[in-house]
């Protein structure tokens, strides 16, 4: 029972932290994008528009709940909740400091990949359940993209697993704290593996340049076309949670997580996570969008074989590299 309480307590703590980071992250993103686009971003609500996210949330929650007549009511309602669970659930095994971790699972990597991979189910449920052509097209695109980029993602995650010999995320971070960060050393499987991880993570969380599932200039809003109010908010939130948790995962797997000098572990983890988070914004607000076939080609002809090669290189490093 103790573990249940531990999980619930830390779960509440981490979920609250993530959600408030996202609220402020949205404000920051709008300011950031505004500066990139020669405008100011939010300025009206609160000082420097700081209260804008809360105004947004209240607005979205107040909106009328419209369900299309031909929708599959059950799936339509279930999908947004599942989306939040699948994106937030990944955070359960991520160590934010040596002690702040909801569940120190010995197969943490499998948990991350498994729960993250479940995202196809709410996507499909929303797309199919809406009974809308744009939503269905978006859902199928999302599924194809998600399963395709699942392969380089798994291969990239295998690199730190091989290098550290541990399946637990906290174990991987602890190993990096003892030896060296994987993105820094060994540079050859480490850094390219991080790049592949980063790209696959962008694709899994449907960020530009891989946002073809919701491509609003083509598919209006993809799977969220028929969603209004709170349910739309949940999808929107899930997308940001996915991005933030993905950044945290990247920081933990490749940049030593909470490891760092001078400051407590939590500070370092937050700093690294937010750096990656901002990097994603930067990419998002500068690049255009790929087309489905280009996306697939990039994944299958480049990322997958490179991922396999990196996996073998890291295995060779462990086997023949000697010292550590």
């Amino acid at each position: 029972m103790n573990e249940l309480v531990h999980g619930a307590l830390y779960g509440t703590l981490i979920a609250t932290a993530i959600l408030s980071t996202i609220a402020m992250g949205i404000w920051f993103e709008r300011k950031f994008a505004g500066r990139m686009q020669q405008r100011l971003g939010p300025t009206i609500v609160g000082p420097a528009g700081l209260l804008q996210p809360f105004a947004d949330i209240i607005k979205l929650l107040q909106k009328e709940d419209i369900v299309p007549r031909d929708a599959d009511r059950g799936l339509f309602d279930l999908a947004p909740i599942l989306a939040v669970v699948c994106s937030l659930g990944v955070a359960a095994v991520i160590p934010f400091s040596p002690s702040i971790i909801a569940s120190d699972l010995d197969v943490g990597v499998l948990w991350v990949l498994g729960i993250g991979g479940l995202m196809v189910i709410p996507t499909f449920a929303a797309g199919w359940g809406s009974n809308n052509k744009f939503a269905l097209l978006g859902a199928m695109r999302a599924i194809a993209q998600s399963v395709s980029y699942g392969v380089p993602l798994v291969l990239a995650v295998l690199v730190p697993v091989v290098l550290s010999g541990s399946l637990s995320i906290s174990g991987i971070v602890a190993w990096q704290a003892q030896h060296h960060w994987f993105a820094v050393w060994p540079i050859v499987p480490g850094l390219p593996a991080f790049v592949i991880f980063f790209l696959a993570m962008l694709a899994e969380s449907n960020r530009i340049p891989f946002d073809i599932p919701e491509a609003e200039s083509e598919l209006v809003a993809g799977i969220t076309t028929e969603y209004t109010g709170a349910k739309f908010t949940l999808f929107y939130m899930a997308e940001y949670v996915h991005t933030l948790v993905g950044s945290a995962l990247g920081a933990a797997l490749f940049f030593g997580g909470w490891d760092g000098p001078f400051a407590p572990g939590l500070h370092w983890m937050v700093l690294k996570t937010l750096t990656l988070f901002v990097l994603i914004y930067w990419v998002r607000w500068s690049l255009l969008r790929f087309r489905a076939d280009q996306l697939m080609r990039l994944c299958w002809t480049w990322l997958t074989p490179i991922g396999v090669a990196l996996l073998l290189v890291s295995a060779a490093w462990v086997t023949f590299g000697g010292t550590n």
Binding site: Q37, I208, D211, S217, W285, S286, L288, R289
Partner: peptide, 18 residues
């Protein structure tokens, strides 16, 4: 054109506003 290719919530709108 850049909005069409890059989305209203992404790089497309950056070029758009410029």
């Amino acid at each position: 054109q850049s909005i069409d290719l890059g989305g209203a919530l992404g790089g497309g709108s950056t070029l758009f506003l410029h």
